[in-house]
Lab assay of single mutants.
Amino acid sequence: HMTFVALYDYVASGETDLSFKKGERLQIVNNTEGDWWLAHSLTTGRTGYIPSNYVAPSD
């Protein structure tokens, strides 16, 4: 899985979304859904959809 880092805080707007904090590391499970990607937080262990423009590839 690709690892990304959150650029901003995001508060989930629905049950399927994943809240995260700036700097949180996320594994992308599925990024074929356009602007919303299914991600797994390496910080909280939770999985949900995130806005793709809130994250950047982590080196």
Score class of each variant (00 low, 15 high):
Gly34Asp: 12
Trp37Glu: 01
Thr16Trp: 15
Ile50Ser: 00
Trp37Asp: 01
Tyr8Gly: 04
Val55Asp: 02
Gln27Ser: 10
Ala56Ser: 10
Ile50Leu: 04
Ala12Tyr: 02
Ile28Lys: 06
Thr16Asn: 14
Ala12Glu: 04
Asn31Asp: 12
Trp37Asn: 02
Val55Glu: 01
Asp59Gly: 15
Phe20Asn: 00
Pro57Asp: 06
Asn53Val: 09
Val55Arg: 01
Lys21His: 10
Asp35Trp: 11
Glu33Trp: 11
Asn30Trp: 10
Asp59Cys: 13
Ala6His: 00
Tyr8Arg: 09
Val29Gly: 05
Glu33Gln: 15
Ile50Phe: 03
Asp59His: 15
Thr44Asp: 04
Gly14Ala: 13
Leu7Gln: 05
Pro57Thr: 08
Trp37Ile: 07
Glu33Ser: 14
Glu24Phe: 01
Asp59Ser: 13
Asp17Gln: 15
Thr43Asp: 15
Asp9Gln: 03
Gly45Tyr: 06
Asp59Asn: 13
Leu26Glu: 00
Ser41Ala: 03
Gly34Phe: 09
Phe4Arg: 04
Ser58Arg: 06
Ser41Thr: 02
Thr3Glu: 13
Tyr8Ser: 07
Phe4Ser: 03
Gly23Ala: 03
Asn30Ser: 14
Phe4Thr: 04
Arg46Ala: 10
Ala39Glu: 00
Leu7Asn: 04
Ile28Leu: 07
Tyr8Asp: 06
Met2Thr: 13
Gly14Arg: 15
Arg46Met: 13
Leu7Ala: 04
Asp35Ala: 12
Gly48Pro: 00
Gln27Cys: 15
Leu18Met: 15
Ser58Gly: 10
Leu38Phe: 12
Leu42Ile: 09
Thr47Ala: 07
Ala39Ile: 04
Arg25Lys: 13
Asp35Lys: 11
Tyr8His: 08
Val55Met: 06
Thr44Asn: 06
Thr47Arg: 09
Asp35Asn: 12
Pro51Ile: 02
Leu26Ala: 00
Asp9Gly: 04
Phe20Leu: 07
Ser19Val: 04
Glu24Thr: 03
Leu26Thr: 00
Ala12Cys: 05
Thr43Glu: 13
Thr47Tyr: 10
Asn53Met: 10
Pro57Asn: 07
Leu38Thr: 03
Ala39Gly: 05
Asp17Cys: 11
Ile28Gly: 03
Ser58Gln: 13
Asp9Trp: 02
Asp9Ser: 07
Ala6Thr: 06
Gly23His: 05
Arg25Met: 15
Met2Pro: 13
Ser41Lys: 02
Met2Ser: 11
Leu38Pro: 02
Lys22Ala: 11
Thr3Val: 15
Glu24Lys: 00
Thr3Ala: 07
Arg25Gly: 04
Gly14Lys: 14
Lys21Asp: 06
Leu42Tyr: 08
Thr32Trp: 09
Ala56Arg: 11
Asp17Pro: 03
Asn31Ser: 13
Gly34Asn: 12
Ser52Tyr: 09
Thr16Val: 11
Asp17Arg: 12
Ser19Tyr: 04
Arg46Trp: 07
Lys21Asn: 09
Gly48Leu: 02
Thr16Leu: 14
Arg25Trp: 14
Lys22Ile: 07
Tyr8Ile: 06
Tyr54Ser: 10
Ile28Tyr: 02
Val29Gln: 08
Gly45Met: 06
Lys22Trp: 04
Tyr10Ile: 02
Thr44Gly: 04
Ala12Ser: 09
Gly45Asp: 06
Tyr8Phe: 12
Tyr54Asp: 01
Leu42Phe: 08
Phe20Trp: 01
Met2Glu: 10
Phe20Glu: 00
Ser58Tyr: 14
Asn53Arg: 13
Phe20Met: 07
Ala12Lys: 05
Tyr8Glu: 08
Arg25Pro: 07
Ala6Gln: 00
Ile50Tyr: 00
Ala12Asp: 03
Thr32Ala: 12
Trp36Gln: 06
Val29Asp: 06
Thr44Ala: 04
Thr3His: 14
Ile50Gly: 00
Lys21Ser: 11
Lys21Glu: 08
Ile50Gln: 00
Phe20Arg: 00
Gly23Ile: 00
Arg46Gln: 11
Arg46Thr: 06
His40Val: 15
Thr44Pro: 00
Phe20Ile: 09
Lys21Arg: 12
Lys22Asn: 03
Tyr8Pro: 00
Thr32Asn: 09
Leu26Val: 04
His40Pro: 00
Ser52Glu: 03
Asp35Met: 12
Tyr49Ala: 03
Trp36Gly: 02
Gly48Ile: 01
Ala39Asp: 00
Glu33Ile: 13
Ser13Asn: 11
Ser19Ala: 07
Glu24Cys: 03
Ser19Asp: 07
Val29Phe: 11
His40Thr: 15
Lys21Ile: 09
Asn31Thr: 14
Lys22His: 05
Gly48Ser: 01
Ser58Leu: 15
Ser41Tyr: 00
His1Met: 12
Ala56Gly: 10
Ser52Asp: 02
His40Gln: 13
Thr43Asn: 10
Trp36Pro: 06
Glu24Ile: 00
Asp9Phe: 02
Asn30Gln: 10
Trp36Val: 06
Glu24Met: 02
Asp9Arg: 02
Phe20Tyr: 01
His1Lys: 11
Gly45Cys: 08
Leu18Cys: 04
Leu42Gln: 06
Asp59Arg: 07
Leu38Val: 07
Thr43Leu: 12
Met2Ile: 12
Pro51Trp: 05
Gly48Trp: 01
Ser41Arg: 02
Glu33Ala: 13
Val11Ile: 13
Glu15Arg: 09
Ile50Asn: 00
Thr3Leu: 14
Arg25Ala: 08
Ile28Val: 10
Ser58Phe: 15
Trp36Ile: 07
Leu7Asp: 03
Glu15Pro: 15
Phe20Pro: 00
Tyr49Glu: 03
Tyr49Trp: 15
Val11Ala: 09
Leu26Met: 10
Lys22Pro: 01
Phe4Trp: 13
Thr44Arg: 03
Met2Ala: 11
Ser52Asn: 06
Thr43Ile: 12
Ser52Lys: 14
Glu24Val: 01
Leu26Tyr: 01
Tyr49Ile: 07
Phe20Thr: 01
Ile50Glu: 00
Trp36Glu: 03
Ala12Asn: 04
Glu33Leu: 14
Gly14Leu: 09
Thr16Lys: 13
Leu7Glu: 04
Tyr10Glu: 00
Trp36His: 06
Gly34Met: 11
Asn53Ile: 10
Ser19Leu: 06
Arg46Tyr: 08
Tyr8Val: 07
Leu38Asp: 01
Val5Trp: 06
Arg25Asp: 04
Trp37Gln: 03
Arg46Phe: 08
Leu38Tyr: 11
Leu26Gln: 00
Thr44Glu: 03
Ser19Glu: 05
Phe20Cys: 04
Leu18Gln: 03
Leu42Arg: 04
Asp9Thr: 07
Val55Tyr: 04
Tyr10Lys: 02
Trp36Phe: 08
Gly23Ser: 04
Val11Gln: 12
Ser52Gln: 07
Thr3Met: 13
Asn30Lys: 09
Gly34Arg: 13
Val5His: 05
Glu24Ser: 02
Ser41Asp: 04
Ile28Phe: 03
Thr3Trp: 14
Leu42Pro: 08
Arg46Pro: 00
Thr43Trp: 10
Ser58Asn: 09
Gln27Val: 15
Val55Ala: 05
Phe20Val: 07
Leu7Gly: 02
Pro57Phe: 09
Thr43Pro: 03
Ala6Asp: 00
Gln27Pro: 00
Thr32Gly: 10
Ile50Lys: 00
Ala56Asn: 06
Asp59Phe: 13
Pro57Gly: 07
Phe4Lys: 03
His40Glu: 09
Ser58Trp: 15
Glu15Ala: 15
Val11Met: 10
Gln27Met: 15
Pro51Arg: 05
Tyr49Leu: 12
Glu33Asp: 14
Ala6Cys: 07
Asp59Ile: 13
Ser13Lys: 14
Ser58Asp: 14
Asn31Met: 15
Thr3Phe: 14
Ser41Asn: 10
Asn53Phe: 09
Ser58Val: 15
Ala6Trp: 00
Gly34Pro: 15
Asn31His: 11
Tyr49Thr: 05
Ile28Trp: 02
Leu7Val: 07
Lys22Asp: 01
Asn31Gly: 14
Lys22Thr: 07
Tyr49Arg: 08
Asn30Glu: 11
His40Tyr: 15
Tyr10Ser: 01
Thr16Phe: 15
Tyr10Arg: 05
Leu26Asp: 00
Thr32Phe: 10
Ser13Val: 15
Lys21Val: 11
Ile28Asn: 04
Asn53Leu: 10
Ile28His: 01
Ala12Gln: 06
Gly14Glu: 08
Ser13Trp: 08
Gly45Gln: 06
Thr32Glu: 12
Glu24Pro: 00
Thr44Ser: 12
Asp9Glu: 07
Ala39Leu: 01
Val29Lys: 08
Trp37Arg: 02
His40Ile: 15
Leu7Arg: 04
Gly45Asn: 09
Asp17Lys: 12
Gly23Thr: 02
Ala56Ile: 14
Asn30Gly: 15
Leu26His: 00
Gly45Ile: 01
Ala56Met: 12
Ala12Arg: 05
Ser13Thr: 15
Gly23Cys: 05
Thr16Tyr: 15
